[in-house]
Design a protein around this nucleic acid. Structure first.
Lengths: 142, 142
DNA sequence: TTACTTGCAAACGTTTTGCACGATT
DNA sequence: AATCGTGCAAAACGTTTGCAAGTAA
């Protein structure tokens, strides 16, 4: 998937392409839902048994720096990461299976403008996240 | 401020009114920006020197349960709490001084409907937060 | 060859738990 | 008087750091 692009990005930014980094990149780039550092560690270890948890942390840090992954904030914790969408996009998460989709929040402009006027704030960033049930989980009942 | 209301709420829900709980409630209800457990601890200790950090954690837990405070998610961490607004409201945070204001995000309906249709998700919750500079910090330059 | 990167172990900060004592109802 | 709540100490996490050995360029 994006894995090769991510590796290129790492290289272009002066980072070396190592076993550890490849393993982390391949795990995160391929997964459709948010993963915590330990989850990345467990999965990546399947193919790279010598991988250490510390390298997972350090690689995630770099991927976040480069804007390739983002931290996902949820009620039960904020230690999970997921691949970023293209451009400025927001997340829609399934509270049951953890599936994630990206969407654009263009329509927020007017709201933000009106809040700025009301409060006198200069709004520089916005975080939006939707939570619900995905198509699959809806079908599966309950 | 809301402090008395909060204490009543605690009592009505079967919790006893103790020194520790009063100290935490009085600290958080009065503060206009998000506080971490340790910050609450330090401030509350000014008036209740025997207070323990554990009681701060346990009281914050109950206040969150009762919907009186909410966790604030920020780039630099998600361990801070702030009083909830009235009804369903969102947060506008100053990234410089930490000031917080509540606003209503009513205008999100159309966006949510359109995302639901596009993705097949049943959206049950939304989470919006604006970040920027407050009036004061804008004036204070840069 | 050189500098970057690794994994380990240990340190660190935050949050939770077990428990005997103390306080509220 | 009976619970419920407290503070302390210790345990349990998640994350970061120091370092000698290994590896990419």
């Amino acid at each position: 998937m994006n894995a090769d692009l991510w590796l290129t990005q790492l290289k272009d930014n002066g980072y070396r392409l190592t076993e550890a980094r490849k393993a982390v990149v391949e795990t995160v780039a391929v997964t459709q839902h948010a993963l915590s550092p330990v989850e990345v560690f467990d999965r990546a270890r399947a193919s790279s048994p010598r991988l250490g948890l510390v390298s997972v942390y350090r690689t995630l840090e770099k991927l976040e720096e480069l804007g390739l992954i983002q931290r996902v904030h949820q009620v039960h914790g904020c230690q999970a990461f997921i691949a970023c969408g293209k451009g400025h996009e927001h997340l829609l998460l399934c509270t049951k299976c953890g599936a994630a989709e990206h969407f654009t929040g263009d329509k927020l402009g007017p709201l933000i403008t009106s809040i700025s006027k009301q409060t006198g704030y200069k709004v520089e960033e916005h975080w939006l996240q939707l939570l619900g049930l995905c198509k699959k989980c809806l079908k599966a009942g309950k």
